[in-house]
């Protein structure tokens, strides 16, 4: 039997709804070609952030459903205003042993280990993701400026709308939080990328001592925006097995537990730099999103809530924000960005 061509993952498959063999015949169901996923939002939520023009401020956080065009397709259909890929490294990475995710009472602990197909797999993912009709933000992780620049160049060539530099993975030795801890290094990496690509460069920083300073260096070096914050380095131990549960022992804590820390980080960085910020950390409803916006974020990434409540949480947050804008009587999200700083 001849293989139906063009249906495989990574190659245009999304337009095939399903196919199957029955009674010796091949049946194919096609999806409507001009699929327009997600409801058209009213203009109040339209926002510019770091050179990107977004229908509304809600997108996924890197690492959540960002490893294949099909996964990104789910996010597009759920209404995400931009699509953020999983972090790409230069070389392919297998990731850590399981468990890579442990549910905790007030958050999720994970250590996936930056598993990804490497630079080689980047173009095909980005090209396929572009067909979803949303800006594609490619997350990249490296260990030194040149590596970041190389990955960013590949992302730009493949059609990425922006690159997000992962300077804050809490459990990837040498290519995560350690970089973000040193404002100088942050500046060098951002500078290398910003001088290589024309698309907007976003620096994703985590909870570090000199966050405000690192943010400043990133902006000076050409970052168009900041993504704040990443997960917090954390651990869970099984008291009977007497061992850390995560395969990697240490991982990153996300979810509602870290939200007040994210609000503070966004608030402090915005106060100092008055820059474009995408807020991340424990957003699970419009209210937690609104807190980040009032603290200074122009857009929001959602991670754990997608895991725990499903992709529909994106649309719930968007609708909730619309209501909120009506309630407080503002005509544009813009007016609320950083409003908590006014006295």
């Amino acid at each position: 039997m001849p293989r139906p061509a063009g249906f495989r993952a990574n190659s245009g498959c999304p337009r095939v709804e399903s196919f199957y063999y029955q009674a010796g015949c091949l049946f194919i169901t096609l999806k409507p070609t001009a699929q327009k996923p997600g409801a058209l939002r009213v203009a109040v939520l339209r926002i510019h952030v770091a050179g990107l023009e977004l229908e509304h401020p809600v997108m996924n956080a890197s690492g959540i459903l960002g490893s294949s065009p099909e996964a990104l397709g789910r996010l597009a259909r759920a209404g995400a205003s931009a699509l953020v890929t999983k972090s790409f490294t230069k070389e392919p990475r297998e990731g850590y042993p399981t468990p890579i995710a442990v549910p905790l009472p007030y958050g999720l602990l994970n250590a996936v280990g930056l598993s990804n197909p490497g630079l080689e797999g980047l173009p095909s993912l980005v090209k396929a993701a572009r067909r979803l009709g949303r800006p594609v933000i490619v997350s990249i992780a490296g260990s030194e400026p040149g590596e970041f620049a190389e990955l960013a160049a590949a992302a730009e060539e493949a059609g990425a709308a922006a690159v997000e530099l992962n300077l804050s993975c809490p459990h990837a030795r040498g290519r995560g939080l350690e970089l973000g801890m040193d404002p100088q290094t942050v500046g060098e990496i951002v500078a290398a990328v910003a001088s290589t690509v024309k698309i907007p460069v976003l620096a994703k920083l985590g909870l570090v001592d000199r966050l405000v300073e690192a943010a400043g260096k990133a902006l000076e070096a050409g970052a168009r925006g900041l993504v704040l914050i990443n997960t917090l380095r954390a651990m869970a131990i099984d008291v009977y097995a007497m061992r850390p549960v995560l395969g990697n022992r240490v991982g990153g804590l996300s979810g509602p537990a870290i939200h007040p820390v994210a609000v503070r980080a966004v608030y402090e960085v915005y106060r100092e730099h008055n820059c474009d910020i995408i807020g991340v950390g424990g957003v699970e409803d419009w209210r937690s999103a609104a807190e980040l916006i009032l603290a200074g974020a122009r857009a929001i990434q959602v991670g754990t809530a997608i895991v725990t409540r499903g992709e529909q949480v994106i649309d719930e947050i968007v609708k909730g924000l619309e209501n909120y804008l009506n309630e407080v009587g503002v005509k544009s999200l813009e007016e609320l960005v950083g409003a908590a700083h006014k006295q």
Partner: peptide, 16 residues
Amino acid sequence: RCGMGFCGSCMLPCTS
């Protein structure tokens, strides 16, 4: 891998 759908390992071939 993650068991919760976010890592994407458990994607069924050429579906979403």
